[in-house]
Amino acid sequence: MTFQRAKRMAAAAGVVVAAGALPILVASPASATQGACTNYVASHGYFAGPKVKEACSHGAIKTPFGSWPNPACTLGLAQLNIKNAVSDPACSRA
């Protein structure tokens, strides 16, 4: 095997490894928290459709004192007639 051929094979293997690792490295961490918000809303008897998912896509505001509900999330849920007693804790999970 020549050096050029070995070099090409190594480069091809590197591309395959990078292509396999890329989705893991850039996966959105928000998807799990959006699910927690949506599940919380659904567990309180509301239909958790696409509009609830969109509202829950606005992540909570993280501070050293805890998570605060994102105003965009609570406003989005309020427009869907979801009570503040449900939307605030749900948006804190987003």
Rank of each mutant, 00 (worst) to 15 (best):
T2Q: 11
F3E: 12
A6P: 01
A6Y: 09
R8V: 04
M9F: 10
A11C: 14
A12D: 07
A12Y: 07
G14T: 05
G14S: 15
A21W: 09
A21T: 04
L22C: 09
I24N: 11
L25S: 09
A27F: 05
S31L: 14
A32C: 12
T33R: 03
T33I: 03
G35Q: 01
C37A: 03
T38Y: 06
T38I: 09
N39L: 12
N39F: 02
N39C: 04
A42D: 06
S43R: 09
F47E: 14
A48F: 02
A48R: 01
G49V: 00
V52K: 00
K53P: 03
K53D: 09
A55E: 14
S57W: 09
G59N: 14
G59E: 15
I61P: 03
K62D: 14
K62Y: 02
T63D: 02
T63I: 03
P64G: 02
P64T: 00
G66K: 09
W68V: 15
P69L: 02
P71T: 07
A72Y: 11
T74E: 04
L75T: 06
G76M: 11
G76N: 10
L77A: 00
A78E: 05
N81T: 02
N81C: 07
K83F: 04
D88Y: 15
P89G: 00
P89I: 04
C91P: 01
S92N: 12
S92K: 14
R93G: 06
A94K: 01
